[in-house]
Amino acid sequence: MIILTVMIREKLIMENRKTKNEKNQKEEIELKEEAAVSTGENTPLDNEETKSKEKRTASLEKENECLRKELDEQKEKYLRLFAEYDNYRKRTNKETSEAYSRATAEAVTSFLPLLDNLERAQQYAPDDEGMRALIKQLQDILVSLKVTVIDSDNKCFDPNFHNAIMHEEDESTEECRIVQTFQKGYMLGDKVIRHAMVKVVN
């Protein structure tokens, strides 16, 4: 009986010591963690969280870099496409304008002889109101198409606008001066569609 009591007592003492040791170890760990926090050192848990955050940050930075690269590529494609479209638009507008000018010049040139004949006929019938009205109507059409008459009378001869079909000697007149216009010249905008036929002093 005494032996059993002694054994139980020793067992209780050992368990009590074990409990104290575990408690002391726990308190020691807590003290170390508190000391680490106060000194700025990372605990194992903090280290895991830090590594996880760093890994997540690296992943986001890599994804962001990929998106930025893709955005730059799309921007470059857009700018190139916009430049191509702008060049196409300018080229198309220029071609359309040139085609319109050519068609207008051809149409005007085709009825200029009619206007020439009417103006010559008017010199012999200056009081013919019908002829005068018809000439005025044709001249208004030319104005609406931005067709202008080349000024020739008493002007200095310019081969860009005039075609000299006759020459005469006259010492009293400045050389290369136009003294007579046989046929009017016309321009469409800044383009000559028919040169003026003139007489020039040598």
Rank of each mutant, 00 (worst) to 15 (best):
A99K: 13
Y100L: 15
S101K: 14
S101P: 03
R102H: 09
R102Q: 12
R102F: 05
R102P: 05
A103S: 15
A103R: 09
A105L: 04
A105M: 07
V108W: 08
S110I: 04
F111L: 08
L112F: 09
L112E: 10
P113Q: 07
P113I: 03
P113E: 06
P113N: 11
L114Y: 11
L114H: 10
L114N: 12
L114K: 13
L115T: 07
L115V: 06
L115F: 04
L115A: 11
L118V: 01
L118C: 04
E119N: 10
E119Q: 14
R120Y: 07
R120C: 09
Q122S: 14
Q122T: 05
Q122C: 11
Q123K: 15
Y124W: 07
A125R: 10
A125Y: 05
A125Q: 13
D128F: 09
D128L: 06
D128H: 09
D128Y: 07
D128S: 14
D128M: 10
E129W: 02
E129H: 13
G130D: 09
M131T: 05
M131Q: 07
R132D: 00
A133H: 02
A133W: 00
L134H: 08
I135W: 03
K136A: 14
K136L: 09
K136W: 02
K136C: 07
Q137F: 06
Q137E: 12
Q137Y: 05
L138A: 13
L138S: 10
Q139W: 00
D140C: 09
D140K: 15
I141G: 13
L142N: 00
V143N: 13
S144H: 02
L145W: 03
L145K: 13
V147G: 03
T148M: 10
T148C: 11
I150H: 01
I150E: 00
I150Y: 01
I150D: 00
D151R: 13
S152D: 01
N154F: 10
K155W: 02
K155S: 07
C156N: 12
F157N: 01
F157H: 06
D158L: 09
P159W: 01
P159F: 05
H162S: 12
H162A: 09
H162V: 09
H162I: 05
N163G: 04
N163I: 02
A164W: 01
I165R: 10
I165F: 08
M166Q: 14
H167M: 06
H167T: 07
E168N: 04
E168V: 03
E169H: 01
D170L: 05
D170T: 05
D170Y: 05
E171Q: 14
S172L: 07
S172R: 09
S172N: 11
E174F: 03
E174P: 06
E174Q: 12
E175Y: 04
